[in-house]
Every structure is written in C-alpha cells, then in structure tokens.
C-alpha cells in the first residue's frame, strides 16, 4: 500500500483486496500520517482495487471520524462498478464523495 501526502491532503493507494487483513495495516499507517501532517482531506484511490468488504467500509468510516474533528473530508477516486456498489449499499456515500472523472 502506498501513501502520498501533499500539504494537508493524504492519498491512500489501496491494495487489490481491501479486507480486515489489509485494513489493519491501512489504519495504522494512515492514522500516523494524518496525525503527523495535520491531514484534513483523505483520498481513497481504488485504481488497483478489485475487492472490498465491510472491513474497508469500517476503515473509511474510522478515517472520516478522525478528520471530521477538524472539518475535513474523505473522497473516493477511480472506483469501479463493484466498489461503487459496495460503497452505496453500505451508506458510506452519505459521508464520502465519489469523484467521477469524465470519460475520455
């Protein structure tokens, strides 16, 4: 999993499969980066992700709870159809924006 911090914005490049196993690592690393860099915006990049279950939803909600305190936001980018379905079904789209790119 890779992370990129630009000013107060953290991008998390999610692994191929986001489950309880990978979400644990994500939580530890992301929270350290958020605290150290005063991150306000967290972007979840699903470019390389094919699978996610409710543990991924928990990871998104947890990071949202953290940045919400300082008025931050969480975003999802590069979501495929399956990921969008999981996000929508869970209701997490109420707190997270899905960034849709224009189809070229």
């Amino acid at each position: 999993m890779e992370y990129q911090v630009q000013e107060n914005c953290l991008t998390i490049f999610l692994p191929r499969e986001v489950d309880h196993h990978s979400a644990e690592e994500l939580r530890k690393n992301a929270d350290a980066l958020i605290e150290r860099n005063h991150v306000k915006y967290v972007i979840f990049d699903f470019e390389g992700t094919e699978f996610m279950d409710s543990s991924g939803i928990g990871a998104i909600m947890g990071r949202y709870r953290l940045v919400r305190l300082i008025g931050g936001e969480v975003w999802a980018v590069h979501t495929n159809e399956r990921i969008q379905k999981i996000l929508t079904m869970s209701g997490v789209t109420k707190i997270m924006q899905i960034y849709e790119e224009e189809k070229s």
Binding site: S54, I57, G62, S90, V92
Partner: peptide, 18 residues
Amino acid sequence: PMYTSKPEADRSGMGFSF
C-alpha cells in the same frame, strides 16, 4: 445493520447486512 459490538476497532457493523 450498523450494529457492532466493537465500534472502537473500526468495524462498520455491515457484515451480516452484506
């Protein structure tokens, strides 16, 4: 839906719903 016995552990409570 949304019920979890472990909210502190980042659980979403959506497992059975899924």
